[in-house]
């Protein structure tokens, strides 16, 4: 387990970490999710020892490592831009940590062969990083980090510099790898889809603070506040309530909408259809509240949209099935 307690870190007057405490369970794959400048990378680098905390402590497996250098923390670290050793072959890159530890040659060879197999680079061992694609370089970096059997694997936006397709493949591959190797993994990302896809726990950071920690479902379904809600997916704002676009029901009949609303206690909103966008299986209905002149959108299935037979300019009544109050600090959930 990794435990961070009351971590503070400031760069000049900018507080990168403002009293952050976080527990990361052993064997989990935890994502630190947040916008740039939220402190997520600083937190990861503080766990690695690449950054020193102004205050607070870091414990890895019960041991206080706050004042230990990175070399002695038993970590593996993967950088966004791979940090490949450009003058070494793939094989020498992966072997680096073992060579530093002066392991016997036979053991190094065995371990490196094994890892190259795991990351699918067995045929590339004599190449130099410049001769690899971005995805291959990052897999090499992962093998290099795993070679020393780290207690924790720390990944700093590992797929951020890759194409969308490669990123998808590598993400899925990392998930499978984690299911096999079970090393406690912390992944920094600003991409909510990546966090939801790959992690079993997510910590959402904003402005140097942790907003919420939980499983992807918990965070998506029960966001603690508007920030978490809007960071983890699309949000439609109806007056001062927030709802997911796919939780919006549209009714052509005002009286039916009101009857439903009275039963559930959630108000209905009158809106005008601005535009209809068909995106494969779903239909995006762009709506506008005439009196407030606020735009938002609803996601319907193709069948729902066909039943309603919507046209641009039609008036509909919008009823959210789940909402989060958009104003005030206290999260109010309904639905």
């Amino acid at each position: 387990m990794i435990r961070v307690t009351h971590a503070h870190k400031a760069y000049g007057t900018f507080a990168a970490l403002d009293d952050v405490s976080l527990d990361i369970p052993s064997g989990s794959l935890t994502a630190l999710l947040g916008p740039s400048g939220s402190g997520k990378s600083t937190l990861l680098r503080a766990i690695a020892g690449l950054e020193h905390l102004d205050e607070g402590a870091v414990l890895i497996a019960g041991e206080d490592v706050t004042h230990l250098p990175p070399q002695k923390r038993g970590i593996g670290f993967v950088f966004q831009h791979y940090a490949a050793f450009k003058h070494m072959t793939v094989r020498d890159n992966v072997a680096f940590g073992l060579v530093i530890r002066k392991r016997p040659k036979s053991e190094i060879n065995r371990r490196v062969d094994e890892l190259l197999e795991v990351v699918g680079l067995a045929g590339f061992q004599h190449r130099y990083p410049a001769q690899l694609s971005g995805g291959q370089r990052q897999r090499m970096a992962l093998a290099r980090a795993l070679a020393v059997d780290p207690q924790v694997l720390l990944l700093d936006e590992p797929f951020g510099a890759l194409d969308a397709k490669v990123r998808d493949d590598l993400r899925r591959w990392l998930r499978r790898l984690h299911d096999e190797v079970h090393v406690t993994t912390v992944l920094v990302t600003h991409d909510q889809e990546e966090a939801l896809d790959v992690a079993d726990r997510i910590a959402v950071l904003n402005a140097g603070r942790i907003e919420q920690v939980g499983s992807p479902e918990e965070l998506y379904e029960n966001p603690a506040n508007p920030f978490v809600m809007s960071f983890l997916g699309s949000v439609s704002r109806l007056g001062d309530t927030l709802a997911r676009p796919h939780d919006l029901r549209l009714e052509r009949d005002a009286s039916r909408a009101h009857a439903e609303a009275d039963a559930s206690g959630v108000p209905v909103t009158e809106a005008e259809v601005d535009r209809l966008v068909r995106l494969g299986f779903e239909v995006r209905v762009e709506l506008r509240q005439p009196e407030a002149d606020e735009s938002f959108f609803a996601q319907l299935t193709r069948d729902e949209a066909a039943d309603l037979d919507l046209r641009v300019g039609d008036t509909v009544w919008v009823r959210p099935t789940r909402t989060l109050a958009g104003t005030g600090d206290v999260p109010a959930l309904a639905g």
Binding site: P70, Q71, A83, A84, F96, G97, I100, R101, V148
Partner: peptide
Amino acid sequence: QEQAATTLG
């Protein structure tokens, strides 16, 4: 690269 080497011991 130097930081990577450091994390590798």
